[in-house]
Nucleic acid binder design. Structure first.
Lengths: 231, 231
DNA sequence: ATATAGTGTGTCAAATTTACACCATTAAAT
DNA sequence: ATTTAATGGTGTAAATTTGACACACTATAT
């Protein structure tokens, strides 16, 4: 009655494109591989999915092992399944992205032997990466560029409290173009999901800017309408 | 030197959500399964990827075997990787969609034993499907709904020559809302990628409508600008 | 006090979107 | 020949959104 599934020497893996924003620059996390193939190459954090874990769980685990980062909201964006993308066999990889606040203090450091180091690298001037990771990165970057306009991804990259100028400079980094300050502010504030705080920027040697918070509650309300009713 | 990949009893599969448009209704292709598990259930066309074929190639092959359809432009949209989504083992499935002109004459008929029949079914009132196929369908439907606005997917569903009313009714079916006739026409024509033909609809018992063609050349030009320069 | 660096603000023109109704054409029915 | 039924095809005005554009204010450092 039961038909057995064929046994293949096939493996699923996960690769992660983790974006961060620091000093006005968009960056991603890279690791230095400590294993063949592509030993010593730079690569996206990625590894093999276990038999008994879902790909979403695997994405979280693998990212943790290679970078020490936990509890990111990982989002699948594409699956790469060319026959020869891995030199040692058939490996299909599901690519995820995540967005993270880079804190100066929070160190990224591999927990396993598979990676020697993990570090942030600006998305401009990326070096050649192992496997097809350059292509995976490009695909992921295009996705978030698109999604920036209809998903609240910007706020995951910024600190909880941020200035409008910081927000704008993030948009400019992702979209790779200059935006008009007055129009940008007008529009962002018009959405109504930014909460102005009674607090100002500190530690700057010029007029301190107002701080804002992202109000996810309100955002969700607006966004749901957009999805369900579409006006 | 070479590290061997682990051997898992893991399998990749492909599942297809094939959209068609007929009689003003949006439909998808379903098959009736002829194999355990879920024998006799309705399901999306789907099967297992071979060792030596890319997932894109597999998608085309599998669709052909299960429905007799060839040369569709299949587009990957999501990968489903829950541990227990397949009762017999670990199967990760990459889901694809495609859009097709339903021709009365072009029959859909399985070429293999795995499916008993293949047929079109309206997307409204879909029955319960095998595995997690209902979820896969929903995800795919949401994708094309989104993409309708910035990809030329409508024209793959219509005959080569179509009327503006047909185009509008397709938009209405996908977006599930009424559109204003005058505004819709004005906007569509303003893009400049519709070519008006010297031909009219035939066989209707009322005033025949002008026929149009989609001009992919022009569309591409417009679309490229949108992507690269973003105005 | 003054130099510096970034903050915060308004208006007008242009473009886009929305709402809205009726006559024209054709084939079929009478 | 006339009528009926069904859909085709068209324009305008108001509202909204977008885009371009420049300068005075404020906090700090020297």
């Amino acid at each position: 009655m039961e038909v057995k599934l064929p046994t293949f020497n096939s493996v699923f893996s996960i690769d992660c494109v983790i974006f961060g924003f620091e000093a006005g620059e968009l960056k991603i996390l890279l690791i230095e591989r400590n294993e063949e193939p592509f030993k010593d190459w730079l690569a996206l954090p990625g590894y093999i999915v276990e038999q008994d874990e879902s790909i979403d769980d695997a994405a979280e685990r693998i990212l943790y092992e290679l970078t020490g980062l936990r509890d990111l909201h990982m989002q699948q964006f594409h699956t790469f399944g060319e026959v020869n993308r891995h030199p040692q066999g058939r490996v299909i990889t599901v690519a995820y992205y995540a967005l993270i606040r880079i804190n100066g203090q929070k160190e990224v450091k591999p927990v396993t032997q598979y990676a020697k180091t993990a570090f942030w690298h600006p998305v401009n001037e990326l070096p050649k990466l192992a496997f097809d990771h350059s292509e995976i990165f490009e695909t992921g970057f295009n996705k978030i560029r698109r999604r920036l306009n209809y998903q609240p991804i910007a706020f995951e990259l910024l600190p909880e409290k941020f200035t409008l100028t910081q927000l704008q400079s993030l948009y400019e980094a992702v979209l790779n173009k200059k935006l008009d300050k007055r129009n940008f502010r007008k529009k962002m504030l018009s959405y109504g999901f930014l909460k102005e705080l009674d607090e100002k920027q500190k530690g700057v040697s010029y007029r301190a800017a107002k701080l804002y918070k992202f109000d996810r509650r309100k955002y969700t309300k607006i966004f749901q309408n957009d999805l369900n009713l579409d006006k």
